[in-house]
């Protein structure tokens, strides 16, 4: 748009994508409140968007370079900048609704360190945006997620079922206990507050629901309901429709990691490879990770 030649040589990143809708879906899934600042990190592998809340909840969206139809990375080091997540999503939305297939170019930095976006599919109609970036406050506090032992403590459950379970637990409220036990292999969500509610996922009873399970000893931790809810509250409809699974892992100290896969395929191109685990061409998937810190516990004998 502006003196293109000069900017081209200086930009850290110029990339193009053809599925704005999918990117919007992926970003929306980590938008749990109206005003959120996100940290964007660029690298030769792709773009990572990180959102945090009060040091107890962190979410990351991985947009690997394979998602882009063009990805020219020219920076040394890993440029980081802050941006308002809501504004970024609203802005992307105006590009995606433009009708028909549209190719969007992202460029960073602009002349004034902005994130520059523009549609590049039509020579006579151009939508463009310049989003002001902010200097990230501090270096994002990285969750050191380490496995809790030699056998991973994890389960994979249908995303829709996980969302439904967490939605249902709203009623008892504030604090939710998640337990994994090897015999019989099952995952138990338990909420105690205004009332008690317990939801059991039994591995043998319903292998369609609980797709995978790995646990060699009983473990149980409590998590704040509002943080658990944030992990599934904005899961895109496409994830539920594609019948995908979400993976939950409990790491050292009870740190809970929840992973979703969001399809960023162009809606016009149907993908033949959808099986029950929701597998698609890996290149058209954005990875979403949530990290939830457990509540400080008085007694937790089972974990180190």
């Amino acid at each position: 748009m502006s003196s293109a030649a000069a900017v081209d040589t200086e930009a850290d990143l110029v990339c193009e994508l053809d599925s704005v809708r999918g990117i919007v879906d992926a970003l929306c899934s980590v938008r749990w409140k109206r005003f959120q600042d996100a940290l964007v990190e660029l690298s030769e592998h792709g773009i990572v968007i990180i959102v945090e809340e009060t040091g107890c909840l962190q979410a990351k969206v991985y947009l690997q370079r394979e998602l882009f139809i063009k990805y020219d990375y020219a920076a040394t080091g890993r440029p980081r900048f802050g941006v308002s997540l809501g504004l970024f999503i609203d802005c992307l939305n105006t590009f995606s609704v433009h009708g028909r297939s549209n190719v969007l170019e992202l460029r960073y930095p602009g002349p004034d360190m902005q994130l520059m976006l523009r549609s590049v599919d039509s020579p006579d109609a151009c939508i463009y945006a310049e989003i002001r970036t902010i200097i990230p406050e501090t270096i994002s506090w990285d969750y050191n997620f380490e496995p809790a032992g030699s056998t991973p403590l994890s389960f994979t459950v249908k995303s829709a079922a996980l969302k439904e379970a967490i939605d249902d637990l709203e009623w008892p409220g504030s604090s939710i206990q998640i337990s994994l036990q090897p015999a019989p292999p099952s995952v138990i969500f338990r909420g105690e507050g205004h009332g008690d509610l317990q939801i059991d996922f039994n591995y043998y009873a319903n292998t369609d629901l609980l797709i995978a399970f790995s646990c060699d000893r009983q473990v149980s931790h409590r998590y704040k309901y509002k943080f658990l809810r944030a992990t599934t509250s904005n899961i895109p409809a496409s994830v539920l429709k594609d019948n995908r699974g979400s993976k939950a892992t409990i790491g050292r100290g009870g740190m809970l990691k929840i992973q979703h896969l969001v399809s960023v395929a162009k809606p016009s191109v149907p993908h033949p490879h959808i099986d029950s685990a929701g597998y698609q061409q890996p290149s058209r998937i954005a990875y979403i990770e949530f990290f939830v810190k457990p509540e400080v516990e008085e007694s937790n004998a089972d974990d180190d």
Partner: peptide, 30 residues
């Protein structure tokens, strides 16, 4: 203060007073 978002549509049909586009404007921002 946070964002500039716009759309430019060119070469639309004109009714009434018209003028020829200036060639030197082509490389410029909208």
């Amino acid at each position: 203060s946070l964002i500039a978002l716009g759309a430019e549509f060119r070469k639309l049909k004109v009714l009434g007073e018209r003028a020829d586009p200036v060639a030197e404007d082509n490389g410029l921002s909208a």
